[in-house]
């Protein structure tokens, strides 16, 4: 049932091995299995979008990749190394950056303290602040404000600032658009595109299929805990508008 990206197809892209690779990954919450053998590849320097209806398992895939959820079967490989069993904090220090769904900030810490937490992956605070405030001047104005009191858009800027400043090899983004106005979403994805141009590989889960397909190199359709289709946005366009977007 699950579809695989053929290796040759991907390595044609830039000639390097994939940065992230899931093979036959199963994962469960307690006794309920929600991923039933996921195969997925994120080639070096590419943007891969996970698309699918609510509850399909997109966030769960990202949780497995980030180390928050241990797979019950299968393998997760980052840059060729099997990372099953590695904890989220170890992976974060190895250069994996995850922006979780909805709430990428600590609401009771100030903006500056939030950025300080980002330094635990091994960058210096002055660097993080410099990059963050340069990209989002709004954050610079509010460095003393509690993150929880900022608007949703500003909070999302703050969590993106972390992604920009910690220099990740692999960036995992979950639902950047959650609860945000379309304009802000478009802005955020512009930034994602720029990050990707710097050579960072990105796996992103998104409901706004149109926005993300604009910058994605590949898209994977997730249904009921399986990756059912993988291809370039152009290949998937028809299928998406027919079945998935219902338009």
């Amino acid at each position: 049932m699950s579809a695989t990206i053929s290796d040759s197809h991907l390595s044609n892209h830039d000639g390097n091995g994939p940065l992230l690779e899931l093979s036959g990954v199963r994962a469960a919450y307690g006794t309920i299995e929600v991923l039933h053998g996921v195969d997925l590849v994120v080639p070096q320097g590419s943007v891969v979008a996970l698309l699918g209806p609510n509850g399909a398992g997109k966030s769960t895939i990202l949780k497995v990749c980030s180390g928050l959820l241990q797979p019950t079967a299968g393998e997760v490989r980052v840059a060729g190394r099997v990372i099953n069993g590695a904890t989220a904090d170890q992976l974060a220090r190895l250069g994996l950056c995850t922006i979780p769904e909805g709430k990428g900030v600590f609401p009771n810490l100030t903006v500056r303290e939030n950025l300080w937490m980002a330094t635990m992956s091994g960058v210096s605070l002055s660097d993080v602040e410099e990059i963050a405030y340069a990209r989002f001047p709004r954050l610079g104005e509010r460095r003393k404000q509690l993150a929880g009191t900022m608007s949703g858009g500003e909070q999302q800027m703050l969590s993106m600032a972390r992604a920009l400043s910690v220099n990740p090899a692999l960036l995992l983004l979950d639902e950047l658009s959650m609860g945000l106005a379309p304009l802000i979403v478009a802005n955020l994805y512009e930034i994602v595109a720029q990050v990707s141009e710097e050579g960072v590989s990105i796996l992103v889960s998104e409901q706004f299929a149109r926005t993300v397909l604009g910058i994605a190199h590949y898209a994977a359709i997730v249904l009921h805990g399986n990756v059912t289709r993988v291809g370039t946005p152009a290949e998937l366009e028809d299928e998406l508008s027919a079945a998935y977007l219902g338009s």
Partner: peptide
């Protein structure tokens, strides 16, 4: 940083892990 991280733990331990904290 450790002290601030201690406050961060109450907010969201998972997010702290994603940041590389323990």
């Amino acid at each position: 940083r450790s002290g601030v991280a201690m406050r961060a733990v109450v907010d969201d331990p998972e997010l702290l892990e994603l940041n590389g904290g323990r």
